[in-house]
């Protein structure tokens, strides 16, 4: 559907790209992982968004399965969905690298190529998809929406059981 001319606002278009709207409407892996080894409720107290991340780690610290379900805006739900797709089969060490790369993308600190250089080359394609989240850089108050599931994931992998965006500075 074509937006009327006066909302053909580039910032809005880059924030609400088709891939974001698609993952926001039909989130992948919106479930609880069976036999999960960690379970975190992520919470943004400013808006009330809640996302539960569950994962099953192998003995060798590889993410065998990961899922995220909850209530939130298009940005946070899409981010959670893209995150679960990117992290399946990845080591916790690589997940940490991806987390940093996504944070920097969302803050506009790196471009796609620089983000790709931060992670193993097998994840280059995932970075391209995750870069669709970088539209938030023009909307400082929405950066936390994009990073909420990632904070929850990091807590989950660290074995904690809650995560909040409050008190976490995402900068501008």
């Amino acid at each position: 559907m074509t937006a009327p001319d006066d909302v053909k606002n580039d910032d809005l278009k880059s924030l609400y790209q088709e891939i974001i709207l698609d993952h926001g409407r039909n989130p992948r892996n919106a479930r609880i992982v069976e036999h999960h080894t960690c379970n975190v409720k992520g919470n943004n107290p400013l808006c009330g968004d809640r996302i539960t991340v569950t994962a099953r780690l192998s003995a060798g610290q590889v993410i065998e399965d990961i899922a995220a379900e909850g209530k939130g805006c298009a940005i946070s739900i899409a981010s959670a969905s893209l995150m679960t797709e990117a992290l399946k089969g990845v080591s916790t060490e690589t997940a940490q690298k991806l987390f940093v790369a996504v944070q920097k993308l969302c803050k506009g600190e790196v471009d796609v190529a620089a983000a790709q250089a931060m992670v193993p080359s097998a994840l280059s394609e995932q970075i391209e998809k995750l870069a669709s989240l970088s539209g938030v850089k023009q909307f400082p108050v929405r950066v936390k929406c994009a990073t909420l599931p990632w904070h929850a994931m990091m807590s989950c992998l660290a074995g904690r059981n809650d995560a909040t965006t409050e008190g976490v500075s995402e900068g501008n």
Binding site: L12, L15, Y16, C73, A74, F139, R142, C145
Partner: peptide, 8 residues
């Protein structure tokens, strides 16, 4: 979501 509405 209300937040997406408010942004637009």
């Amino acid at each position: 979501h209300p937040h997406d509405l408010a942004t637009v």
